[in-house]
Amino acid sequence: MEGAWIPLWLTLKVAGCATALNLVAGVGLGWAMARSRFPGRDLLDALFTLPMVMPPTVLGYYLLVLIGTQGPIGGWLLQHFGIRLIFTWQAAVLAAALVAFPLVFKAARAAFETVDPQLEQAARTLGLGEAAVFFRVSLPMAWRGVLSGLLLSFARAMGEFGATLMVAGSIPGRTQTLSIAVYEAVQAGQDDVALFLVAITSLTSIAVLLAAGRLLPGRVAAAA
């Protein structure tokens, strides 16, 4: 049973890194979409939300095409830097980040839309630059929504299976996350290991969801 803890730590690392990526991309794009009006905005919003409804295996295939050794990104990294992304824990991070991205993006956008633009304009009138307005006015007023989205993203990243399996595989100790370890344990008839891993995953996910619900009860469901 000791080996069952390895997928847990790997999953926490993958989910943490994926959430960090979504913190930058999701919050930035959520703020930009909340404050911008331009032709094609609704289409762009739909594209950012697409990973929420698209099958994870399809997302995994897209990633495989992009970061595989023959793909435009993976091939370039391998040729110029000797970096092979496919079947690494970093590939698992990209898969988890892609699948969980809409949860941060939608929550951040909704949170920033509740911030009064007149307060931001007043800050600009007082001489603050755009970065200062964002970090000193917009983000402090929207932090609950942003944090709830990040918590939901972390929980979703912990449970990612399909896209991760396609681009990272199931290498014990290297890319085998909790959800994949559960699948492998069931396939191998190791019901005690599977039950232990399921219990860990369930308790961790419940704790994260309870924390998100306490931060912003009304918006967690809307963001999902």
Rank of each mutant, 00 (worst) to 15 (best):
M1A: 10
E2G: 15
A4S: 10
A4Q: 13
L8F: 07
W9V: 04
W9C: 01
L12N: 06
V14K: 02
A15H: 05
A15T: 01
C17N: 03
A18M: 08
A18R: 10
V24Y: 00
A25C: 05
A25P: 00
G26N: 05
G28A: 11
G28D: 09
G28T: 04
L29D: 03
G30Q: 12
G30L: 07
G30N: 13
G30V: 12
A32G: 04
M33G: 03
A34G: 04
S36W: 14
G40P: 12
G40Q: 04
R41Y: 08
L44R: 04
L44A: 15
A46D: 06
L47Y: 12
F48L: 15
P51I: 09
P55N: 06
P56C: 05
T57E: 00
Y62P: 00
Y62Q: 01
L64F: 07
L64Y: 12
V65M: 11
I67P: 04
Q70A: 08
G71I: 03
P72N: 09
P72K: 12
G75P: 13
W76Q: 07
H80W: 13
F81G: 02
F81L: 13
G82A: 04
I83H: 00
I83W: 15
R84M: 09
L85V: 11
F87I: 01
F87Q: 09
F87R: 10
T88S: 14
T88I: 08
T88K: 13
V93G: 13
A95Y: 07
A96L: 01
A96R: 06
A97K: 06
L98P: 05
V99Q: 06
A100M: 05
A100L: 06
L103I: 15
L103T: 09
V104M: 09
K106W: 00
A108F: 08
R109W: 01
A110H: 13
A110S: 15
F112Y: 04
E113V: 02
T114C: 02
V115P: 08
Q121N: 11
G127P: 09
G129I: 08
A131T: 11
F134H: 08
F135H: 09
F135E: 02
R136V: 00
V137S: 05
S138N: 12
P140F: 05
P140I: 08
A142N: 09
R144P: 01
G145R: 15
S148C: 15
L151I: 14
L152W: 10
L152M: 15
G159Y: 07
G159A: 14
G159I: 08
E160Q: 10
G162E: 06
L165Q: 05
L165F: 13
L165D: 00
A168G: 09
G169W: 06
S170K: 11
P172D: 10
P172H: 06
R174N: 14
L178W: 00
A181L: 12
V186W: 02
Q190W: 12
D191M: 15
D192Q: 11
V193E: 09
L195K: 07
V198H: 00
V198W: 00
A199S: 15
L203K: 02
T204H: 01
A207L: 14
L209N: 03
L209A: 11
L210P: 00
L210R: 15
A211L: 14
A211C: 13
G213T: 06
G213F: 03
L215H: 12
G218N: 13
R219A: 07
A221Q: 13
